[in-house]
Computed example of a mutant assay.
Amino acid sequence: MTVQPIFETLDRTSSIPAAPERSSDESTADAATHLGASSEPSPSAQLRTQFLRRVAHDIASPTGVTMTVLEELANESSRPELVAMARRGLRRLLRLSEQLALAADLDAGPLSPDTTLEDVRGLVKDAQTQAIAIDGRRDIVTSCELPDEKLVADVDRRLVSSMLREVIGNALRLASSRVTVDVSHADGKVTVRVQDDGPGFSNEVLATLGQRFTPGSTSRGLGLSLSMAKDVLAAHNGTLSVDASTLPPGRRGNRGAAVLMTLPLV
Rank of each mutant, 00 (worst) to 15 (best):
153 A>L: 00
128 Q>G: 15
45 A>T: 03
208 T>P: 15
24 S>P: 15
50 Q>W: 12
160 V>F: 02
48 R>A: 13
31 A>W: 13
38 S>D: 15
215 P>S: 00
239 T>H: 06
141 V>A: 15
9 T>Y: 11
219 S>D: 08
217 S>N: 09
90 L>H: 01
185 H>L: 00
109 G>Q: 03
135 D>I: 10
192 V>F: 04
35 L>E: 07
215 P>V: 01
66 T>D: 00
258 A>C: 10
260 L>A: 00
197 D>W: 12
151 L>N: 01
174 L>Y: 10
77 S>W: 02
181 V>N: 09
124 V>N: 11
75 N>R: 03
36 G>H: 05
127 A>P: 07
260 L>K: 07
245 S>G: 11
77 S>T: 08
72 E>V: 11
203 N>H: 10
206 L>P: 14
222 L>H: 06
174 L>E: 13
75 N>E: 14
55 V>C: 06
243 D>L: 12
102 L>R: 04
4 Q>K: 09
240 L>V: 11
67 M>I: 06
86 A>F: 01
123 L>M: 06
199 P>F: 14
193 R>A: 14
26 E>T: 11
238 G>L: 02
57 H>I: 09
261 M>K: 00
232 V>F: 02
244 A>K: 11
165 R>K: 07
253 G>A: 12
220 R>G: 05
59 I>A: 12
50 Q>K: 03
73 L>Q: 08
185 H>V: 01
254 N>G: 07
154 D>R: 01
227 S>P: 07
13 T>D: 12
63 T>A: 07
193 R>S: 14
48 R>N: 14
5 P>A: 14
242 V>P: 11
195 Q>H: 15
60 A>I: 04
221 G>D: 08
65 V>Q: 05
61 S>D: 14
173 R>M: 04
99 Q>I: 11
83 V>Y: 04
152 V>G: 10
254 N>W: 01
236 H>R: 05
2 T>S: 10
222 L>W: 10
136 G>Q: 12
42 S>T: 10
162 S>A: 10
54 R>Q: 09
196 D>G: 08
130 Q>P: 03
39 S>P: 00
99 Q>S: 06
65 V>C: 04
98 E>Y: 04
147 P>F: 14
88 R>W: 01
22 R>V: 03
229 A>N: 08
183 V>Y: 07
260 L>I: 05
7 F>P: 08
250 G>A: 12
101 A>H: 05
119 D>G: 04
189 K>R: 14
6 I>E: 15
83 V>K: 00
235 A>L: 01
113 P>D: 09
224 L>W: 09
127 A>C: 06
130 Q>F: 02
134 I>P: 04
196 D>W: 00
169 G>H: 07
92 R>C: 05
220 R>I: 03
215 P>M: 00
111 L>D: 02
248 P>A: 14
185 H>M: 02
